[in-house]
Simulated assay, not measured.
Amino acid sequence: MKQARIIIYFILVAIVVLPISCRRKAKFNGPPTLRDMCDRSDLIVIGKAISIEKIKPKTEIPIKDYLLKLQIQILTNIKGDSDNDTINCYILSNEDFKRPQFINGEKLMAFLRYSKELKAFMPFSLLFGIKYHSEESVDICEARTLEYYKIMKQSGDISARLSDWLVRCVEDSITRGDEIYDLYNNYLDTKNEKASHNSKPEIKVVLSLQQQQRLYEAVLKTEFLTFNEFYMLEMAGDIGDERIVPLLARYLRKGEINRTIGVIESMRRICNSTKIDGCAELVMEYEASESTKPGYEGTQYRNEIVSRFLILLGNNGY
């Protein structure tokens, strides 16, 4: 029995990276999308975690990797078939990185693929293949999944319906990370299709003013900005709404140690929304320095520009 567990462990280590090669080619590689997992999972279930067993192979060489054997009681079968009311799912984990951590009785949604080598199920994606953070998040993921399958069964051109489905996923913080790259990459490809023969969107994403406003309003509800929200702002366009200014200013102030993500985008949008005298000049100075002042000294120089920009905002009540 122990020998079998060791064999299972090493097979899983060898094949756990396979989902990466299955991803669609995109300008920005993120985690597997919800759409990917809907299309390519062998089994999708809503269930409860009923037992979690840690399996660590005994070897002469100390290793921190181990397997979690997660037993799931199936409540709802969304895709694929299972012969039993329970299934076992094997998940690679690590002593230094102990997620995912499941609780007995916890509701979850599992996107699983069948491993012929293991003769068992494993998550489609190590980190994103099982949704379990809260019952609300599971319910929302289930709703989006069922909506997707309903759209895919419809006849005719479904691009507009898929595009709106992507917006619906992204405007909700629970499914934002699952579909932001899908929406953004197809948005870019659609936008650049006429200019480049190499730009062929899988889904034509032509956002209406209402959809742009939905993305913008979703950003306003966000406490901490990431790449995701800056992609959303880009797709929303320059609305010129001052409500975004406190959020962007707070982002710039909290990024004093390592200003890298969304700095110039924040400065431009603040400048366009407030029309404060002196802002435009600082934006131009920052942009010019990116090509004329590389390296550490350039970074320090740009940080000083941001500091002056924030002082200017503070003097104007932001």
Rank of each mutant, 00 (worst) to 15 (best):
Q73L: 04
Q73H: 10
Q73K: 11
Q73S: 13
I74N: 10
I74K: 13
I74E: 14
I74S: 13
L75S: 13
T76W: 05
N77K: 15
N77H: 08
G80T: 03
D81N: 04
D81R: 07
D81Q: 05
S82K: 13
D83W: 06
D83H: 11
T86G: 06
T86F: 02
I87P: 03
I87R: 12
I87C: 12
I87L: 10
Y90T: 00
I91A: 08
L92T: 14
L92Y: 03
L92P: 01
E95H: 03
D96I: 01
D96K: 07
D96G: 00
F97R: 15
F97Y: 13
K98E: 12
R99C: 05
R99W: 11
P100I: 14
P100E: 13
Q101E: 15
Q101S: 07
F102E: 12
I103V: 02
N104R: 05
N104T: 14
G105I: 03
G105C: 04
E106M: 09
E106N: 06
E106S: 00
E106K: 12
K107I: 01
L108R: 11
M109A: 00
M109Q: 06
A110D: 01
A110H: 00
F111M: 04
L112P: 03
L112K: 10
R113D: 06
Y114P: 04
Y114F: 12
Y114M: 10
S115M: 08
S115D: 12
K116C: 08
K116G: 13
E117Q: 09
L118H: 00
L118I: 07
F121W: 09
F121L: 07
F121S: 01
F121A: 02
M122K: 08
P123E: 08
L127I: 15
L127G: 14
G129L: 02
G129W: 01
